[in-house]
């Protein structure tokens, strides 16, 4: 080694540093990933807004005045308003049970929570048709009692519940496991009751994870297409949610209208990402790293 010039030895021992080819490789990789992102992710996003605003802002705004569009937006908001709180409560309960207690069938419960991730949304919808449809198991009974589930709001809510229920729980389980039980135990020895411990100790501890889980759950609840499509029956103005309405408009070549509604859903996605970034920033600040 003594005979070699220092720089050669240096370059040989540290590949990817200082040499022109290494620099090239680095930029090539960064460029490739960027190009891929632009082509696959950003371009479609931009296209949504471009098409929606293509014929001017007035046409864009006018497309929201269509009563069916309004009904679709209202239905979507109503569905989310019912589904998200239910799944939030369920998610907190399930995460609490899994993170804090040891019990038989725990692994099975975790698998069950993941089930909606694994099942195709179409199947999730079909299951409810099989259960509550006219030919389904409970179909006759429901008909006798004049209750509409399939092709009505209850069906849409059930299908959305099924598809979105893992989001909050999945976000909270690892967080709660990591944070442990000590603070809650400390609160109890200091005399706090169950509710006070939850509100003043547990909730603040998990708030960012919870917010993120709720937002993800909400985004999916509003954007769900497959499962809802099966159970909704596509009755315009009555059982079409935003994604279904977009499809209908698109199939009728009402591009501006379709993309105007689509832009709302896209906006929701952007907001989700922004909140996620805020959350990560906040939680890193809180832990002091």
């Amino acid at each position: 080694m003594a005979g070699l010039p220092a720089s050669a030895a240096d370059a040989g021992s540290r590949p990817g540093r200082g040499t022109a080819s290494a620099l090239l490789v680095r930029w090539l990789f960064i460029g490739l990933s960027l190009a891929f992102l632009v082509a696959v992710l950003l371009a479609p996003l931009a296209a949504v807004f471009a098409t929606a605003l293509g014929q001017g802002i007035d046409t864009y705004l006018a497309s929201f005045e269509d009563p069916d569009t309004g009904a679709a937006i209202r239905l979507t908001l109503l569905t989310a308003a019912i589904v998200v709180p239910i799944n939030t409560i369920f998610g907190i309960c399930a995460a609490w049970a899994i993170a804090k207690f040891e019990f038989r069938g725990k692994a099975f419960l975790i698998t069950l929570i993941d089930l909606p991730f694994a099942v195709s949304p179409i199947i999730s919808g079909l299951v409810y048709v099989l259960l509550f449809g006219a030919q389904g198991w409970f179909g006759m009974w429901l008909q006798e009692h004049n209750i509409d589930v399939i092709f009505a709001l209850p069906g849409i809510i059930l299908a959305t519940l099924f598809v979105t229920f893992p989001y909050v729980a999945r976000e909270l389980i690892p967080l709660m496991e990591q944070l442990g039980n000590d603070e809650e135990e400390a609160a109890i020895t200091l005399g706090a009751g169950g509710l006070m411990t939850f509100v003043s100790v547990t909730l603040p501890k998990i708030r960012w994870g919870l917010i993120y889980g709720v937002i993800l759950c909400n985004a999916r609840a509003m954007g769900e297409f497959g499962a809802v499509s099966v159970v909704s029956g596509h009755i315009r103005g009555l059982t079409t949610t935003m994604p279904l309405h977009i499809e209908i408009l698109y199939n009728e070549y009402a591009f501006v209208g379709a993309f105007a509604v689509a832009s709302l859903l896209t906006l929701l996605a952007v907001i989700t990402l922004v909140i996620k970034s805020i959350m990560e920033w906040q939680s890193s600040k809180a832990t002091g790293h």
């Binding site: 000590d182 400390a186 609160a187 109890i188 020895t189 200091l190 005399g191 003043s200 603040p204 501890k205």
Partner: peptide
Amino acid sequence: VSAREREVGFVFQNYALFRHMTVGENIEFA
């Protein structure tokens, strides 16, 4: 008797301070 009614002070190995509360709020909790 449940832990909250035993009126004991307990100190944990890894402190278990309420991380979102200030020192003062922590002490005032009980």
